[in-house]
Amino acid sequence: MVTSRIWFTAAQKAELWERWKSGSSAAAISRALDRRNKTGVLRIVTLHGGIAPAPHRRALAALRLEEREEISRGIAVGQSIRQIALGLGRAPSTVSRELRRNGGSQCYRANQADRRAWERALRAKPCRLALHRELRWRVAQKLALQWSPEQISGWLKREFPTDQDMQISHEAIYRSLFVQTRGVLKKELTAHLRTRRQMRLPKSHNAGSGQGHILDMVSIRERPAEAEDRAVPGHWEGDLLSGGNDTHIATLIERHSRFTMLVKLPRKDTTTVVAALAKHVRKLPEQLRRSLTWDQGKEMHAHKRFTIATKVQVYFCDPRSPWQRGSNENTNGLVRQYFPRGTNFARISQAHLNAIALRLNQRPRKTLGFETPADKLQAVLH
């Protein structure tokens, strides 16, 4: 293993991973472990893809050192394999296999056999993706379509409910992507992940942005209960997504189905934004036009004009409360997979935005029981 060249004790490695999971930087961890630089810490973290390896433990059914010593003593006094197994309460095949692995009865040594067993246990075992070719192909195919590991895992359970060989946890997919020593999935597939990260990073929290003031706005607290519990379709959440050179697009998310629409905006002024939103919303069936929830950005200053044009009431969130538009915030993160920060939206056509929205709407969502937003909305309309 590469880590054997990095001189950390088992206790130091355990502390390293605890500090990494708590959000400490490699430099801070190095200082805490009295290391001169962060290179050693980074090598260990990178090798394991930022995922702490599972602690090594002996299997409950494995032979213990004292049992191996009993085998050695039994051989010395001339006992048969069956007699030794009876004294241990083990199957004769277990004792026979133990002797065969370790040189036979003439060369068997308890301490040496125990050390070899521990070394064998430390070797990496083939993971599920390495053993099942079709499963590996399915996972790679969906990753290439920008599906998240969690979406892939949920879809496989729905698609192959009785075939355990075609099911895998999302954590196992992440491990196969991030842990270099596995080599099961191509490293290039990490580029299709929403974050494009090469390793697992500790979770962080983003601060909310400042809000503007809107005249005659209606508070989210007055929004109908049917919108709050997502029971009825037609209630939307909206926001602006910023790009490079002061360019923007609007994102609209239907709360019941998580159906997404992306709207190109030539400018950010309220007249332009309201007109563009109204144009898209008017295309919707009447049962999908009930309400729109927005933050207190100044681009919705002309919200009354939007309501007149669409008959859709606009409700406004409290300042610095992005969780009140949770579906929208989550979808904005998904959209960033296709349009990273700094993207110049002036170069993106409405047709391209429609294609990305279609892809998002055809991806299964965990919150929908791994149905797609498109299927969820289609079921409502019929």
Rank of each mutant, 00 (worst) to 15 (best):
I6L: 14
W7E: 06
Q12T: 06
Q12G: 02
A14V: 04
L16E: 07
S24T: 10
A26I: 02
A26L: 07
S30F: 02
R36Q: 12
L42C: 02
R43K: 11
I44T: 15
L47I: 12
E67M: 03
E67H: 06
E69Y: 12
E70W: 10
I81Y: 08
L86A: 15
R90K: 11
A91I: 03
R97Q: 10
L99N: 07
R101M: 06
G103C: 02
S105P: 13
R109V: 11
Q112C: 07
Q112E: 15
A117M: 09
A121D: 13
L122Y: 08
L122Q: 13
K125M: 04
K125G: 03
L129W: 01
L131M: 10
W137T: 10
R138D: 08
A140V: 02
L143A: 08
L143R: 10
S153E: 15
G154E: 11
T162E: 15
D165S: 15
I168M: 00
R175E: 15
Q180V: 04
K187H: 15
E188R: 14
A191Q: 04
H192I: 00
R197D: 03
M199T: 01
S204Y: 08
N206M: 12
I214K: 03
D216F: 08
V218N: 09
I220G: 11
P224F: 03
E226R: 06
E228W: 13
H235I: 09
W236P: 06
E237Y: 06
N245E: 06
H248P: 00
I253F: 03
I253T: 11
I253M: 13
E254N: 00
R255E: 09
K268N: 01
D269Q: 10
V274K: 07
A276P: 05
L284F: 03
E286P: 00
E286G: 00
R289W: 11
R289D: 07
R290M: 06
R305L: 05
A309W: 14
T310Y: 15
F316G: 08
D318C: 00
P322W: 04
P322A: 02
W323Q: 07
R325N: 09
N332H: 13
G333R: 14
R336S: 12
P340S: 14
G342P: 05
A355T: 14
A357V: 01
L358M: 05
L360M: 12
L368H: 08
F370Q: 07
P373Q: 09
A379H: 07
